[in-house]
Design a protein around this nucleic acid. Structure first.
Lengths: 244, 244
DNA sequence: CGGTGGCTTGACTGGTCTCAATAGATGTGG
DNA sequence: CCACATCTATTGAGACCAGTCAAGCCACCG
């Protein structure tokens, strides 16, 4: 590595030619870039790690960075003035992180697990967008998809019952985690605490807990230990998730 | 008008050079296009009207069109399998309508008032996006903004009480309608029925009605007649809307 | 007129929240 | 190893907010 060597305390290091060994390169924004485009990003990107619970951006702060998520799970959250929190999005490996063209961050971005990121200064990333049509095009596709997802979540928040919310949450989570795990895993470890699940679903921690034990009592899932979940009857679980 | 003349029953007509007299040209996507870009859109755009209650696109249908909204208000809605509905977005004049790059529509698009649109075939619009970087750039900005708004609405749906929901809805509505009306109007006509307001807020029609009469009883608003609303005490109303 | 659709209001139900106690899990230090 | 603190999760009892069901009002219209 020619310009390698970590030079900031916070676990940053030059990405350099590292893209070639990037785990999520094919699925991430970078996936279909030309060499010249990749070089641009390459030169401004830095790898960074966050521990569970660490926050990359606080809502209201200057939005300084964008990033690609390499591994781990991030939450995007908003809060009311009196402290009620709502998780407005979950980000998984290969997802794009951040909000180009906004001076101020609307949401906090926090690590739910150990996380690896490929971070770009926002201004630099915006410049790359301007200069590389292809990159902009890909980001537009992703943003449109994220918008669809956000709206699907609005239907869930506004119209689903607690049981439906918890059931669909489990199915969602299984899908996302299965993507990077051995195929067809129906057993996985939740990256969220009960309280965070509650913040995703617009419920309280107690209601989440009760719905989970109910699903377990009914034999649809198993809860071997705190964070472990095993889906026993996917079809029935889908039925309880209702909705489209 | 050289190629003017309506030629489809459904209220469509050639847009032709009409852009020059477009009411929302400055605020819409078209606002900062070059002449050449405008000409491209111009040649594929057609003006179209919808009556209150008419639906432009049904969820699940092929997504055939995109459009700019010239006047009126549209709702974007999603439904559960058993018919519960959630309005996931409201569109106002100058807003962009539709979902490029998706074969199938995720949401229904329905007119809440009389509506005028400048409609483009989706494929043609996508081609214009590919050929005109500038247009793509503007759409990206708008989509990012729409995503922020969707997420703000998630906080509302998941964490606000009925009173907070109704209060913030009224403030939102006042802002949007004031934009195109005489300055500082605190009195306006709701483009939505109670039942539609309920669908926006994730409530029932009865709860919306009760919250409205409560706000009236407390002197924060007035309800001269069904759809008319007058904000009497904006500050107090903002307090009830809580949240950030 | 009676019918229809939108809106309000009341009485009641019930799902979710609140408050509180208990049980596990994890880690620290003696 | 155990005692202890801390954090997370479960469970129960009761309260309350919002939903459900039902009746009635009003404006509009054939």
């Amino acid at each position: 590595m020619t310009r390698g060597a970590a030079h900031k305390g916070g676990g940053e290091k030059a990405v350099a030619q590292i893209c070639t060994e990037c785990v999520v390169r094919d699925q991430s924004l970078c996936g279909s870039l030309t060499d010249s485009e990749l070089t641009t990003l390459n030169s401004i990107g830095r790898s960074r790690r966050l521990g569970r619970g660490e926050t990359l951006v606080w809502a209201g702060d200057d939005a300084v960075v964008c990033a690609n998520l390499l591994s781990g799970v991030l939450k995007l959250s908003a809060s009311t003035a009196d402290g009620r929190e709502q998780i407005v999005g979950l980000l998984y490996p290969a997802d794009f992180v951040g909000r180009p063209f906004a001076e101020e961050a609307e949401h906090s971005i926090t690590a739910l697990t150990e996380v690896e990121l490929c971070v770009f200064p926002r201004k630099g990333f915006e410049a790359a967008l301007e200069n590389h049509v292809h990159l902009e095009r890909l980001l537009l596709r992703r943003t449109l998809a994220a918008l669809d997802e956000a709206r699907a979540r609005m239907l869930m928040l506004g119209r689903k019952t607690a049981e439906e919310k918890v059931a669909s949450f489990l199915l969602d989570m299984a899908d996302h985690l299965a993507r990077n795990a051995p195929p067809c895993r129906t057993e996985f470890e939740l990256p969220l605490t009960r309280s965070q699940i509650a913040d995703v679903l617009g419920l309280t921690i107690e209601t989440v807990s009760r719905q989970l034990t109910k699903l377990k009592r009914d034999g649809l899932i198993d809860l071997p230990s705190g964070r472990q979940v095993a889906i026993r009857n996917r079809v029935a679980l889908k039925l309880r998730a209702e909705a489209a």
